[in-house]
């Protein structure tokens, strides 16, 4: 028991330390090269936690950009206040797409959502009057500059990442979350014991889309110019999935860890070896390593290692109790 308690103390302490570093980062390392990496890293922490729906991110970017253009809002802090509207619009889109797509399962579902993503990309490219087509859509330019430029975006992304984590944490501990875990394990069985699987999946899909849409909106404002092929890009979804698998699927800290490792590495490659897609080779290597060596991801594997150690250290440790015979 005391082991578990001290473990909890470590967890809480670690959480506070990480949060403090995250909050103070722009003060500790104010140079734009670092804060730029930090903005994208925290963005992926949010995306990986919310589990991006394919294309939801780009839809959020376009929604915010178009909304800002429509109201004629100038650059400044005010556009951040419109970000929730991008989330709402993306959630509404997810409700519509999910209504159809969630009739399918597993691999088919993934293919259907990818198809929807390409439809969105085509629409963004071809509705030139609305989106500017391949010429891109411009956002208002923020009036601040210099070393401070990245800081507001960093905090906006951090706020959304923390919101995603808080929602994910809350859901995991709720009756709704238990239903989702049951669906993950055996969807038909869940249905047989009264879990309204379709409504649950749709709700999860919509919540995830709202978060991703907001993150996409902040991204658009940050880069001030968005193009269909970059914001509605399957690679965004692939990066996110890889981060989750590397860190550990079904854990709260796994996606965070995966994003913190992979996104800086990807940016390092991009900034040092030009805008080539060399990082894709790197991603492929990581994918292979994860699948072959760490199929459960870092967090669950390390957790297992620690509990095995404890079990070996003392027979009274909690893990030993599991060995009770039928």
């Amino acid at each position: 028991m005391s082991l578990a308690r001290s473990g909890d103390a470590w967890k809480v302490g670690g959480l506070i330390a990480v949060l403090a570093i995250a909050l103070l980062l722009p003060a500790i390392a104010p140079d734009p090269a670092t804060t730029n990496v930090a903005v994208f890293t925290v963005m992926y922490v949010g995306l990986a936690t919310a589990w991006n729906i394919m294309g939801g991110y780009g839809f959020g970017s376009y929604t915010l950009g178009l909304l800002l253009a429509r109201i004629g809002m100038a650059g400044g802090y005010a556009p951040f206040l419109i970000v929730p509207a991008a989330g709402l619009a993306t959630a509404a889109l997810a409700l519509g797409i999910g209504w159809f797509a969630l009739r399918t399962r597993a691999a088919t579902f993934v293919i259907v959502t990818i198809a929807f993503m390409f439809m969105l990309q085509l629409l963004a490219e071809n509705l030139v009057g609305l989106t500017g087509g391949g010429g891109g859509l411009s956002y208002p330019v923020p009036p601040w500059g210099g070393d401070y430029f990245n800081t507001p975006f960093y905090y906006a992304m951090l706020a959304l990442a923390l919101l995603s984590l808080a929602i994910s944490w809350r859901i995991r501990r709720s009756k709704f979350g238990l239903g989702l875990l049951a669906i993950r394990d055996d969807e038909d069985k869940a249905l047989a014991v009264g879990v309204p699987t379709r409504a649950f999946k749709l709700t999860a899909f919509v919540i995830s889309a709202a978060l991703v849409g907001m993150i996409g909106g902040v991204y658009g404002y940050y880069v001030t110019y968005i193009y269909p092929q970059f914001v509605i890009d399957p690679l965004i979804g692939i990066s996110m999935v890889l981060m989750v698998f590397l860190g550990g699927l079904g854990t709260l800290t796994g996606p965070v860890l995966g994003a913190v490792i992979l996104e800086p590495a990807q940016l390092y490659l991009a900034y040092n070896y030009g805008a080539s897609r060399l990082y894709l080779v790197f991603y492929a290597a990581v994918f292979l390593i994860v699948i072959l060596v760490l199929p459960r991801g870092i967090v669950p594997s390390v957790g297992r290692l620690i509990s095995d150690r404890r079990a070996r250290a003392g027979p009274s440790a909690p893990a030993a109790a599991k060995a009770v015979a039928p």
Binding site: L178, G179, L181, A182, R184, D185, K189, A190, V193, V195
Partner: peptide, 16 residues
Amino acid sequence: ARIFPRLTALENMLVP
């Protein structure tokens, strides 16, 4: 005998 393999026995009881 279909149960939820990655949930504990207690959680299996709580889902329904």
